[in-house]
Design a protein around this nucleic acid. Structure first.
Length: 676
RNA sequence: UGACCUAUGGUGUAACUGGCAACACGUCUGAUUUUGGUUCAGAAGAGUCUAGGUUCGAGCCCUAGUAGGUCAACCA
């Protein structure tokens, strides 16, 4: 995407400013620093696109750095998966780095800190330390070991390193400020003892640096100019800078930490911990379950790298908490696939259709466009015969005017084939339609140019020839959660919002034979249904397709009777609890623009709020600017309720009502009249 | 009750350093269409959290509020 030069996000603005202040452009260097303790998700994609995008924009190197300072949680499997995902997205890192590469340097610097009396070895339990830490509102107290002689700390630290102590027995702490309002500055831990096998350094170390100590110093070692992370690290910045101060040589580049808001997606969760829980509790089949918001899940589902990069692009970067609607992601993949996916036909819920005047036992080969969006994409062959399958939902015995599909006595075109007319149906004992008998207009064959072929009919249906169709399993997916923000409810666990119908498996779908040769890389549009791709579960004798996303369906929208069992998300329970007065003002604002029905309900809501609002509160609002009609109506409504409850009209109130009666706005006038 | 961050249509972001609040998604019309898709044309939707202030002029600057988020792991 070529963005216009003036639409810089705030990170780019910071960079431009640094450049303007003399930072040489060739000093620019970024990094993407995942911890290899889980799979990457769409939120990480935002960070990846940000960092690598900056690299592309400024022609600067971007390192991939694994933040592997906690061997208890990290595994090689995750390292591999992360590299695979970033490569798949289409980005190339300048260097593959590991925090563990710097363990020795970090250790040496730590010794230097001790020598400078900026760090000490503590030997209390975690409970004791936590207690001394204080709370955000009360200062902490010093550890009894805080003033341990430097020599002693040095000696103990070395013993820690040499594995002479049990896990948890000793710690190295920075000596900063136990009274700092920033909890991270209250003598943070630099090193702890962990007896676990590290996926890279094996058993070389038994002390491991904490995130804060490792991260900034790693940035410094790698000459990172801008270290970008998510907002929750904002408070760490002070510590990041303090650590840097201890070892910084002004001859070198000083890295700068800046924070942006993590990207959230509606109807899913986006924390590794929760995603891991979904995997462990077998809510999903694995990290790459097509319903997961992981990069690998999206890939398996049929999303393309381009679509994800586009999504990141359109979403932008800022510092405010956000929940981006999945519809934006879906738009990105539809837009991509519409231009590239091969058009094919598949019937997922079949009903048999017999063309009574088509010769029995015969068949013919028709030609179907591969992609109408790509003029040169050619055609492929589709067999046609007397007996076909169409979708059950594409036929109704009696049709309403708005039903553009097949009904008794109406005509419809079979895509790339003939125009047919339904004559009769055959039903089983339960009344279920088993066959639809039609006559075909043999002169109407697509592409022949005959007069009959050019006739316009209301609808076009997709179909497959029963005799030639191949069978496949098709998996359709719905959102994993029923709530827009499942993890935003304090009183409820996100698992309570799981959508029980997020997976719909169609064991026997019928596909045109062309699909027999599909590969995992292929993307298809099953015409009129959506975009599909082969799943990795496919075997030599069983095709399995995933539905990536449906087509936009304006018919389903105006025809909700067959309701997609999409229970409207429960009313948001975590609505910010505003005080009644400001809530009233909020509601009032929009009053003047509402359709009648909504006006009535909003009005009722405002009147309900009057219960909690006193006359004293609204009196100041009598002076509301004349322009703010909505607010004045709201105030009028509240006043009305209060008067009805027995409030005596004050002079100010009378004047306010009087003004309302003479106002040019009809709504305000009406409400004023109602009070009388 | 502390420190820090944030507040712009339903959603996500813009608005260069004060100058007509813009773009995309979503929604709704209409046209085109051998996909109820695509494409095309259009519409609705914001008093920029509140109250003050500075200014000829404030989404932007100042003051005071309000709401939301983050911080008290030997996680990152």
């Amino acid at each position: 995407m070529k963005e216009s030069p003036e639409a810089l996000n705030f990170i780019e603005q910071i960079i431009e400013e640094d450049l303007a202040n003399g930072l040489p452009k060739d000093k620019l260097r970024f990094r993407f620093p995942p911890e290899p303790n889980g799979y990457l998700h769409i939120g990480h994609a935002a960070s990846i696109c940000l960092n690598f995008g900056l690299g592309e924009k400024y022609n600067a190197p971007v390192n991939l750095r694994f933040d592997d300072t906690n061997p208890a949680k990290e595994e090689q499997e995750y390292v591999d998966a992360i590299k695979r995902d970033i490569s798949w997205l289409g980005f190339k890192w300048a260097n593959e780095c590991y925090s563990s590469d710097y363990f020795q340097q970090l250790y040496d610097w730590a010794v230097q800190l001790i020598k400078a009396d900026k760090a000490y070895v503590d030997q209390q339990t975690s409970e004791q330390i936590a207690e001394q830490k204080g709370t955000p509102t009360t200062p902490g107290t010093a550890s009894p070991y805080r003033d341990r002689p430097i020599e002693e700390s040095l000696e103990l630290f070395e013993k820690m390193k040499n594995g002479e102590f049990e896990k948890g027995a000793y710690l190295l702490r920075a000596k900063i400020d136990m009274a700092s309002p920033n909890m991270h500055m209250r003598d943070p831990i630099l090193y702890r003892i962990i007896n676990a096998h590290h996926h890279r350094t094996g058993n070389d170390w038994c002390i491991y640096p904490m995130y804060d100590w490792a991260h900034g110093e790693s940035d410094y070692i790698e000459h990172i100019s801008h270290s970008l992370c998510t907002l929750e690290f904002k408070l760490h910045r002070e510590l990041y800078d303090w650590y840097l101060d201890q070892i910084y040589d002004p001859a070198n580049l000083r890295p700068k930490q800046r924070e942006f808001a993590r990207r959230n997606l509606s109807y899913t969760v986006m924390s590794k911990r929760k995603l891991l829980e979904l995997v462990q509790k077998e809510v999903v089949s694995g990290w790459n379950d097509p319903r997961m918001p992981t990069i690998s899940g999206l890939r398996r589902r049929g999303y393309t790298p381009d679509s994800i990069r586009k999504f990141s692009d359109l979403s932008g970067i800022s510092k405010r908490d956000n929940v981006t609607d999945v519809s934006l992601l879906e738009y990105c993949i539809r837009e991509d696939l519409n231009k590239t996916a091969t058009r094919v036909m598949a019937v997922l819920d079949p009903v048999k259709l017999v063309l009574t005047n088509y010769p029995d036992g015969e068949s013919e080969i028709l030609h179907m466009e591969n992609n109408p969006e790509l003029p040169d994409s050619g055609t492929h062959e589709v067999p046609f015969s007397r007996e076909l399958y169409i979708e059950r939902a594409d036929f109704q015995e009696e049709a309403s005017k708005k039903f553009f599909r097949l009904a008794l006595g109406t005509e419809v075109r079979l895509k790339s084939a003939y125009i047919i007319k339904a004559d009769s149906v055959v039903k089983d004992d339960s009344g279920r339609i088993t066959e639809i008998h039609c006559t075909v207009d043999l002169d109407s064959k697509s592409g022949t140019g005959t007069e009959a072929s050019l006739r316009k009919v209301k609808g076009t249906l997709h179909w497959v020839s029963i005799e030639h169709a191949i069978k496949a399993e098709v998996r359709e997916y719905d959102r994993l959660f029923l709530d827009e923000a499942p993890d935003s409810h304090e009183e409820k666990n996100f698992l309570e919002f799981i959508n029980p119908d997020s997976l719909n498996v169609i064991k026997e779908a019928y596909l045109e034979p062309f699909l027999a040769n599909a590969t995992l890389e292929d993307k298809f549009q099953f015409q009129r249904l959506g975009y599909f791709t082969l799943d990795t579960d496919t075997t030599s004798d069983q095709l399995v397709f995933n539905k990536t996303v449906g087509l936009k369906d304006s018919w389903a929208k105006q025809n909700p009777q067959k309701e997609q069992a999409k229970p409207a998300a429960p009313a948001p329970q975590n609505q910010p609890k505003k005080n009644p007065l400001s809530e009233m003002q909020q509601l009032s604002k929009k009053l003047t623009n509402l359709p009648e029905e909504k006006y009535a309900s909003t009005k009722a809501n405002i009147q309900k709020l009057a219960e909690e609002i006193s006359y004293e509160e609204i009196e100041p609002l009598f002076n509301t600017a004349a322009k703010k009609v909505g607010t004045r109506i709201g105030v009028m409504l509240i006043l009305g309720v209060l008067i009805k409850k027995g409030l005596e009209k004050t002079e100010a109130a009378k004047a306010f009502i009087e003004a309302g009666l003479n106002d040019s706005n009809e709504l305000l006038k009406t409400e004023a009249e109602a009070i009388g």
